[in-house]
């Protein structure tokens, strides 16, 4: 065995050890690496006693109610992950991307009545990048309902005249 080969093997062994150590550490701390708690895991994962945490999920369709509290913009809406739903109250300006069906991550705490009192609402963008005219056409043709949080049809079909999914009324 040459010295080069020995050095290579030592390096590979170190890499294997380091890799497994890192994997074990990450899986052990996996819960703390999550940014937010979805509604259906609040009972198990959220801190108790009115302490602050981040709640994350989709804004439920038809749940957004924009109000005004002491002259300030405010909103009431529900956050859902399909399994459970939590009501959220927020006083402040919502981000531009906030809409029904959008993912949101909101920092706040649960009141005793089960309503989440938000101090901060962040909008989550998904991995879909779509021009405005395509989005309008998809919505108009009934092929996509973004307010439900559903993913749009595959991007490869957007400009395909064969599928006609962006053509209205087809």
């Amino acid at each position: 065995m040459t010295r080069k080969r020995r050095r290579l093997i030592v390096l590979l062994a170190c890499g294997l050890g380091l890799g497994s150590a890192a994997a074990l550490t990450l899986s052990a701390f996996s819960d703390t690496l999550e940014l937010f708690v979805p509604p259906s895991r609040i009972a198990t994962d959220a801190p108790h006693g009115g302490r602050a945490f981040r709640l994350g999920g989709l804004v439920e369709a038809g749940s957004v109610e924009r109000v005004s509290v002491a002259g300030q913009p405010a909103a009431r809406f529900r956050v859902t992950d399909g399994g459970a739903t939590v009501s959220v109250e927020y006083v402040g300006i919502l981000p531009d991307l906030f809409r029904e069906g959008q993912g949101v991550v909101t920092l706040g705490s649960l009141r005793p009545d089960g309503v989440f009192k938000a101090q901060e609402v962040l909008a989550k963008h998904d991995e879909n990048y779509m021009p405005k005219d395509v989005a309008d056409a998809l919505k108009k043709s009934g092929n996509w309902h973004p307010e439900t949080g559903a993913a749009p049809p595959a991007a490869a079909l957007w400009n395909d005249p064969q599928t006609k999914i962006t053509k209205a009324g087809s």
Binding site: L26, S30, L33, F36, E127, N128, Y129, A154, A155
Partner: peptide
């Protein structure tokens, strides 16, 4: 692996891109 504020990948080796060709 974890839930994040950052979006997932639009361009992957395995799947079709979720981004308009333009």
């Amino acid at each position: 692996w974890w839930n994040t504020l950052h979006q997932g990948a639009s361009i992957t080796l395995t799947g079709a891109p979720t981004m308009a060709p333009a």
